[in-house]
């Protein structure tokens, strides 16, 4: 076992972990942050996406010990209290959350995309959601949700300025 220090959703955490533990298992089993899903467990479905130092990455392909000193945001850290992020609101409004299994990863990736560019084109949105496998909602409504979230964020930016 080795000590791991990191920040998750704004909380500093120190815990002993075994070298064979993935970041995904650490989040789900040690911290009970089960919003991050375990789909294929080999980097093919994208469902385990979390934000590591501001960029979405696959937690199933990362040894937990690699996250030493990292700042991590999981789906549990996206909303501010009861205020959902515009991507979360848009996913609900567009009915893009049918079974919900891919939703945390879709939201994480969408939040990152829109933080970089709140006026993405179709190709950018498609690329953003391309690497997360959705087997029931279908990608059209998720794509629409991303565009709706983008327009919400542009509106908020206009109102704020």
């Amino acid at each position: 076992m080795k000590l791991l220090n990191l920040t998750i959703n704004g909380r500093d955490i120190t815990k002993a972990v075994s070298p064979g533990m993935t970041l995904l298992d650490f989040l789900r089993d040690e911290l009970n942050l089960t919003g991050t899903k375990n789909g294929c467990d080999k980097g093919a479905c994208g469902c385990c996406s979390v934000m590591i130092d501001g960029k979405p990455m696959l937690s199933c392909l990362m040894p937990a010990l690699e996250a030493e000193g990292a700042v991590i945001t999981t789906i549990e850290g996206i909303a501010k209290g009861n205020n959902l992020h515009p991507v979360q609101e848009a996913m609900i409004e567009m009915g893009a959350i049918q079974c919900g299994f891919c939703t945390p990863a879709m939201v994480i990736n969408g939040v990152h995309m829109l933080a970089e560019n709140n006026n993405p084109g179709n190709d950018e949105v498609k690329e953003c959601i391309s690497a997360t496998v959705c087997r029931c909602t279908g990608y059209n409504s998720i794509e629409k949700a991303m565009h709706l979230a983008a327009s919400k964020m542009r509106e908020a930016a206009r109102d704020g300025s």
């Binding site: 080795k2 075994s18 070298p19 064979g20 533990m21 993935t22 995904l24 040894p63 010990l65």
Partner: peptide, 13 residues
């Protein structure tokens, strides 16, 4: 639980 079955050591020089 999907931690790797075989235990190994880990170092980060």
């Amino acid at each position: 639980m999907t931690a790797l079955d075989k235990e190994f050591d880990f170092a980060r020089p």
